[in-house]
C-alpha cells in the first residue's frame, strides 16, 4: 500500500512538473527575471499546486490518520531560524543561476542530457556538504 502510494505520487509529481513547464529552465528563469521579460507562468503552477494541498492539510489537521497507517507530520517548530533564512537564500541563488530545483532535476533526468546529470551530481554533493552543518546546528541548539 505505502509503495503503491509512493510510486503513484512520485509519478504524478513528475507528470505535473513536465506539463507545467517546471523542467524548462528558461521558464523558471523567466519567472525570476522581474527586471527583464517576466514570465508569470510559475504563479499558476504554484497556485494550482496549493489548491489540493490546502484541502489535504485541513483533512490532515482535522484529527484523521493517514490511509496507510502511521501519523501525520506534526507542525514543525515554528521558529524562523537563521538556517531557514540563510539556506533559502543560498538555494534561491542556485535556482536562479541554473533554473533547476530538486524535483525537476529528477523529473528531467531521462531527457536532460549530461548537463542534467552533472547538475544532479553537484546537487547531491551539496546535500552531503549540508550534513555537518545541520549536525553542528543541532548540537548547539
Amino acid at each position: 500500500m505505502r509503495a503503491v502510494i509512493a510510486l503513484t505520487s512520485g509519478g504524478l509529481f513528475g507528470l505535473g512538473l513536465l506539463i507545467s513547464g517546471m523542467v524548462d529552465t528558461n521558464r523558471v528563469q523567466g519567472w525570476l527575471d522581474i527586471f527583464g521579460d517576466w514570465d508569470p507562468t510559475l504563479a499558476f503552477v504554484l497556485g494550482g499546486a496549493i489548491i489540493p494541498m490546502f484541502f489535504a492539510w485541513r483533512l490532515a489537521d482535522g484529527g484523521r490518520t493517514p490511509r496507510a497507517g502511521g501519523m501525520f507530520p506534526p507542525r514543525p517548530n515554528q521558529k524562523i531560524s537563521p538556517e531557514l533564512a540563510i539556506g533559502s537564500l543560498i538555494f534561491g541563488a542556485g535556482w536562479g543561476l541554473a533554473g533547476l530545483c530538486p524535483g525537476p532535476s529528477l523529473a528531467s533526468l531521462t531527457f536532460g542530457g549530461w548537463e542534467g546529470l552533472l547538475f544532479l551530481a553537484a546537487m547531491i554533493v551539496g546535500m552531503l556538504m549540508a550534513v555537518p552543518v545541520k549536525r553542528m546546528r543541532a548540537s548547539t541548539t
Binding site: 505520487s9 504524478l12 489535504a56
Partner: peptide, 22 residues
Amino acid sequence: IYGLIGGLIIGIAAALYLLGNG
C-alpha cells in the same frame, strides 16, 4: 493553462502522499 493544470497535478501528488502515507 499548462502551468495551472501541471500545478494541480503536483498538488494532487502532494495530497496523495500526505493523506496516504502521512
